[in-house]
Amino acid sequence: MSKPRVAIFDFADCEGCELQIANLEEEILDLITIVDVVSFREVMKEHSDDYDIAIIEGSIMRPMDEERLRFIRSRAKILVALGACATIGGVNTLRNQWTPDEVKKEVYGSAKLNETLFDVGPAKAINEVVPVDYYIHGCPIDLDEFKAVVTSLALGKKPEIPTYPVCVECTKNENVCLYELGKFCLGPITRAGCKAICPTHNSPCDGCRGILKKPETECVKDLVARYDLTYEELAQRCTVFNSGKEACK
C-alpha cells in the first residue's frame, strides 16, 4: 500500500491546532513514515498540490479563501476539518452578529482598506463551503484523537467520533461535578472526545467540541432551572464557540 499524501492548510485561526501536530514530538517521525506530508506551510517550505488527504484548519472569511478551499477540495480524496474554527466555526463566528461592514468600520475606522484583503463575509465553518469527510473537533484538538483519526485513515478505517456528552469522560475521570460546586458547565450538552480536560482542571466546559443539544431543548432548560441559572446565561455561554450555523447540528 503506498503512503497517503497529506497536505495541511490553514485559514483564519490561531494555528494552535497545527501546533499540536508539532507537539507530537518524536512521534512526528512516525507520522512521516506512514504518510507523506506534502504541504504544511507552518513548518515546511516544500509544497505540492498532489495529495490524497487535505487537513483544513481555520474558518472561512473571504471569497478568496472560499476559492482556495474549493481548489483544495477538488484535489483531495478525503477532506478533514481540524479544530473548532474549521468544524463549527468556533470563536470566529462570534462577530457574525454584526455585518462585516459594521465590524470593519469599528475596527479600522475611516482608513482606506485594501479591497481584496478586506473583502470579508460572515465567518464560516468548512462544511458551509465544501463537503467535509471527517471532523477532528476541539479548541484546540486533542492530540490522541488526531492520532486516532490519522491511524484510522492510514489503516482504511472510518474514524469514530463520540456522539455522547463530556459528562461521560468527566465521570470516568472521577471528577467532582462542577454543578455540585455551583459552577456552570457545558459538559452535559457538549460532544466528548477531549477526555473532559477542562472540568478535570476544575474549569467549566465551554463547548468547543460542538453542542449536542441546543440550549432551547426542554431537558436543557430544565437543567438550567434546576441549578438556579438563567437560560440567557447558558445561551450566552454557548455562543463562545457555537455561534456558527454549523455549531448546533
Binding site: A12, M61, R95, V103, V107, L117
Partner: peptide, 8 residues
Amino acid sequence: APRFFEAM
C-alpha cells in the same frame, strides 16, 4: 484574513 478579535 482579518479576524476582528476584539469585536468578539
